[in-house]
Structure formats: structure tokens, C-alpha cells
Design a binder for these strands. Structure first.
Lengths: 148, 148
DNA sequence: ATTGATAATGAAAATCGTTTTCAATAATAC
DNA sequence: GTATTATTGAAAACGATTTTCATTATCAAT
């Protein structure tokens, strides 16, 4: 049923292992939750979720595992006006993040190619563009109904 | 010479006053620095800069003034991978932020109209888009030379 | 399977940036 | 000028994250 998540979980563990990390119980539990979450999660939320299945895990390990996954580019910090501490699986290629401001649900959408805009800005300001961030905020279909 | 900054400074003070805030020495000093800075500044950096001209000002007042200016939409927190604590004068309309990753210099560029992209995403995901957030990172002309 | 080297762990303490509290001060309306 | 009351700076409190360290568990080599 959740073949997609299962596959991603295995891939993340593989990449962790390849990097020389040991595949411990806490790490497996943390990856398992992250891969399956439809929302971006704060370290403490993730900690709570992990402890349901793996009661012994410490908050410090959650922080350390998030760092490792971020270093591998598997997970990304999400920036919001209220604070920037939630993490989400990282977008690939031209994907960008779309967040529901009410329930926090997150989507990764394949955005337009923004290169023309970058070229234009680069020409105007003389900058050499290295990176860009685009994020959209709105109401998901469910929350739109709720609100109506 | 710096008529532009001077004008902006007066405008910010006017808006603070209109909101019912008192025009105190510390506030004037903080606004003066912010309006003239070509870089986004952390509260502590701003504090240091302010204290050169107004030695008595406390760090707490810097925080409180930044909050007030942010509430008025005059100043905006800048998001970066290394942390999200620097503040910059806020973009207007379709303006977005362009940051030099080396020296921290910031530009506000008039970006393309991104509405078509939003409409496309809204249609595909059923979201009602409320807000968007675009930032570019790169090397400014000066830092490009330095590096070469 | 057993072992040994060492990466990873959890708990406690330390640290960092920011916010709260509070008595003293200063800006504004009268 | 004077009274009112927002603003101030210093100290203490705070929450999130990081560091430290002794113990435990993974994994490679036997």
C-alpha cells in the first residue's frame, strides 16, 4: 500500500549507510516517521511521534539525525513567518514547496522553470545567481471547505 | 546626497508616530541605521552599529523596535540556510530579495509577475494561494571579482 | 558466533538568541 | 510647566538547540 514511502525509507537508510553511518534503531524509527509525514515537523513533534513506536529515543538523537539527513539533502528546513524549525523531505529538481497555512500540510509541486527570470536579474544587477528559494502558502482543499 | 535614505527615514518615523508610538532617541538611531544599511542586519549587529552613535541604547530596545517596524511592514526578516535572524527593509509590490552569499549585500529586484505559475499550481493542487516567497542567492559583482 | 574498535546514544549541563519583568525615565497632550 | 503613560535598560527568565561525557550497540574482522 505504501510502496512509495517504503521505497523512500530504504533509500534514505541506504544513503545513510553509504555515508558511513550505522543503521541504529533510533535512526530507523526517525526516518520511518519522516518519510511518511504529510506535514513538515518540528524536532519536538518528530520526537513525540517517534517515541510512540520507540519509547527510549532521546530528543538529542532527533536533532542529530535531522542534521545528518539535511547534510545528505534528504530533508529540508521549511521557512515560515512564525519560525523556521519544521523539516520536510527535500524537493528534487525544479520542485518547490506549497504549504497549507491552516493545517500545515505540505506538497511538492513541479514549478515552472524560472531560469529566464534569473538570467534577467543576473543581467540587471551583475550578480551570478547560485541558488533560489520559492515557497507558496495557501489553503489546502480541505481547509478551504472548513473555512467556507 | 542621501536624499533617498533621508526620505525613507522620515517616512518610517512618520508611520511610527501615526501608529501612536513615541519618537524617542533610541528609535531614531535604530531607524537611521536600518534605512541606510545595504546589508540585512542581525539584531546584535544592529545593536553594535547603533551604539556607535547612541551608546546608551539597550539590546532589548533593538528587538522591540524591530518588532514594531516589522508589524508596520517596513522591515522584513530574511531567511537563509545558516539562520533566519537578519532584517532588511521590506520589499514593495512585486519586489523580491537578492542576496550575496559572500558579503551579505542585499538588493531588491522587481521580479516577474508570477501569477501564471500560482494559477497553474492552484489548479493542479486545489489550493487557494495566499502568499509567496521568492529569494535569490548569488555573488554580487564585487565578490565575483574577488573570487576570480 | 565472538570479539574489538568506535560510532551512536541518552541524560544533564551549557549555550545561544530572544522575551519578560520591573522600577526608573522621558515624550507628548494638556 | 505638569501629569499621564509609553518607553527605556538591566537583570532574570525562557525555549530551542548544542555540547559534554560515560555507557551502549553496531559492524567489520575474525
Amino acid at each position: 500500500m505504501d510502496l512509495f514511502e517504503q521505497g523512500m525509507e530504504n533509500e534514505w537508510l541506504r544513503q545513510l549507510g553509504e555515508r558511513g553511518s550505522r543503521l541504529t534503531g533510533p535512526r530507523r524509527a526517525i526516518v520511518r516517521i519522516l518519510v511518511r509525514s504529510r506535514r513538515a515537523l518540528e524536532p519536538l513533534e518528530l520526537f513525540d511521534a517517534v517515541r510512540v513506536e520507540a519509547p527510549g529515543v532521546g530528543l538529542v538523537t532527533v536533532y542529530r539525525t535531522l542534521d545528518a539527513l539535511e547534510a545528505l539533502g534528504l530533508v529540508q528546513r521549511i521557512h515560515e513567518s512564525g519560525g523556521c524549525r519544521r523539516y520536510l523531505r527535500a524537493p528534487h529538481g525544479h520542485q518547490h514547496v506549497l504549504l497549507c497555512t491552516r493545517c500545515g500540510q505540505a506538497e511538492l509541486f513541479d514549478g515552472d522553470d524560472l531560469e529566464p527570470l534569473f538570467a534577467q536579474v543576473a543581467a540587471r544587477w551583475g550578480y551570478q545567481i547560485e541558488e533560489h528559494w520559492l515557497q507558496l502558502f495557501g489553503l489546502c482543499p480541505n481547509c478551504r471547505k472548513m473555512k467556507a
